[in-house]
Design a protein around this nucleic acid. Sequence first.
DNA 1: GGATTAATTCAATTGAGTTGGTTTAAGTGA
DNA 2: TCACTTAAACCAACTCAATTGAATTAATCC
Lengths: 396, 396
Amino acid sequence: MTRLPSPPALVALGGNAERTRSHNRRVVLETVRRHGPLGRSDIAALTQLTAQAVSNIVTELAAEGFLMERGRRRTARGQPPVDFAVNPDGGMTAGMEIAADRITTVLVDLAGDLRAQRTAALNDPSPPAVQALAAAELRDARAADGLPGRLLGCGVVMPGPFGVEGMSSVGDTVLPGWADVDAAAVMTEALGCPVTVENDATAAAVGERLYGAGRDCLDFCFLYFGAGLGLGIVVEGRPYRGAYGNAGEIGHMRVVAGGRACACGGRGCLERYASAHALAERLCDAGLPTTPDAIARLHEQRDPVLAGWITESAGLLGPVIGLLENLFDPATIVLGGALPDTVIDALVEAMRPLPLSVSQRDGRKTPRLQRGATGKLTAALGAAALPLLDRFEPAI
Amino acid sequence: MTRLPSPPALVALGGNAERTRSHNRRVVLETVRRHGPLGRSDIAALTQLTAQAVSNIVTELAAEGFLMERGRRRTARGQPPVDFAVNPDGGMTAGMEIAADRITTVLVDLAGDLRAQRTAALNDPSPPAVQALAAAELRDARAADGLPGRLLGCGVVMPGPFGVEGMSSVGDTVLPGWADVDAAAVMTEALGCPVTVENDATAAAVGERLYGAGRDCLDFCFLYFGAGLGLGIVVEGRPYRGAYGNAGEIGHMRVVAGGRACACGGRGCLERYASAHALAERLCDAGLPTTPDAIARLHEQRDPVLAGWITESAGLLGPVIGLLENLFDPATIVLGGALPDTVIDALVEAMRPLPLSVSQRDGRKTPRLQRGATGKLTAALGAAALPLLDRFEPAI
DNA sequence: GGATTAATTCAATTGAGTTGGTTTAAGTGA
DNA sequence: TCACTTAAACCAACTCAATTGAATTAATCC
């Protein structure tokens, strides 16, 4: 993640009036984003700010284009409130998924709606070539008509791990030429706007936190089926990256004694069985196609190879879910990634009954396991959510 | 933990001048606590507050007895700074470990030093009896001469899980009569000061965060050998409890296929092998004594039963350490609890070489695994650290 | 149409940090 | 010894942003 070049202060910094205002702006914006159209005094009640303070901040945010008036609501008595909502056209964020062979770009507005989408083949994954192609893709995506002009930031998802020098770790899948590069700096230079670099699972989790199942959860996990298997962790509403940015490395957990050999040097690693890549391998061996659309069709046709993979993966993943629940006690666990929605649903179904864990409680509102809302653009959309989180989310 | 009766606001609250001051007071206090004696302008540099703001806050904190002047430091040129340090006698916190058969009470001053310690047998673990005994123990402990008068709060460690109704979960070890009780409220009523209730592992982690190996780590784990095996998790400097307060339930991870039966209904659970209780069981079967002191002696004598347990436990725990590192990417993992220091050290040693994980990096400063600093009073001392964290730690 | 109710704004106040200048307590060096 | 330098700390005026209490506005109720 190229974060923490010097470990951050071990103690918080002091505050002042300006920081208070900045914090309160975020609080107001986030409150409106989450609760939909609200009047000024609704906001005041929710944030525990005074009506006057909210009034000032709302005026400011509306003038800057982040909030928009939505007219008066009809109420029983008294002056009806003027509702405000986030102005979708108040700005955009970009999300990019940089894979070994292609770059996927999305533009998302402040309402979280997809406004543009592109994919380009990447022939040369070296940093200069990626810089050039990414810049061109972003420029071309922004050239479409009717898009908000303001670009608030760009999130980039790419194979990690990054940053930590001398990382001789498990599952090093970094792109050629990017091993000792400050990816965020390289991409910021290329794109000309603030860039946040993240791994696919964490980005997906952030996307889910802003727009999906995680909207109402402060603590949850996202199990991401990509080339490998990744775990995105949200703690107190914010992504958890660990002391060195490598948290959530779940793919190399040993689940089969003496199982298949893995690139990490071990055997029986989880992601050698339960990952998009493992499925593709299996389909390939059986002479079947491996594109997402083809997999979706295979699932419709109840293909036995695919069904077998689902059953096997579910059998391996079930205990892992229980383990995650016991360790993190998440409000929910979201499944998603580079697999068709129907296959994710089948996996969720095949994992029942889930093992006993602290998550097994009477009267749960949220399901222990659910599919993510954002579909196959999950990673890119999650990437687009990163700058928004940076900009809107106040510290709790 | 009897927290979150209503899930807290999903968005932060607004700030104002008073909250800013409260935050800055914490920042100053915590900075001095961590860095030892500091002059006002040192504090200003570290906190990024102005010297004037620091001066005002320091004056206030000194008047309240939290900080004390330590005289002028000798410097090269210019007016030498007046150093301030945390005033040990500025207040105390109490820590209580309530077990099925006894209550251990400690009093700790603001410097983290143990000032009083008591243990009393508990014949009746029902809430009223515990209330009466705990109140008497706290009163008697405070009666000693020369103790600071001010009691800032009390942390209580007791067998969980609490709070969540209908919890039909793994390893329910709650005391008889406490199943559907708001433990924090009961103990607050009994002790007449703010009470934080926590499980042993999390309390130990907080103690380590304030005074031990976790002082310089924002993210780390504490593996606690108690009756069972607990995991305390510190994230961004604060204890992580999960969405429902049950995070860190590591003891029932299956590590031996078809292994020993466990109270949770499963087989081969980790804590049936690697826990103080499992060791006691094993020693008992061999006709050996099971008190901590006796275990320490057995270890000195290189007793083969104990040595066998250490080897076996280390074999089971090693992969678990690797798993935790891959999931949490902690700065370090601390081992501690109800075992003699020498045995913890032997366990750490027996786990080498640790498995490959993201924590295996060149140039580590902190060890991947280390013994906790607080010895066999770990749980009670950790409990005493809880109110201090509540009071001193600013949000990052 | 006046009374009631609730949202919002206006104007004055307050709390807290910042700014710029001043004082204080040392060491330096002629 | 005494003016000079340096850095810490303080003083007083200022500014920012939230709060407070009163006034205004826009609806419904009767």
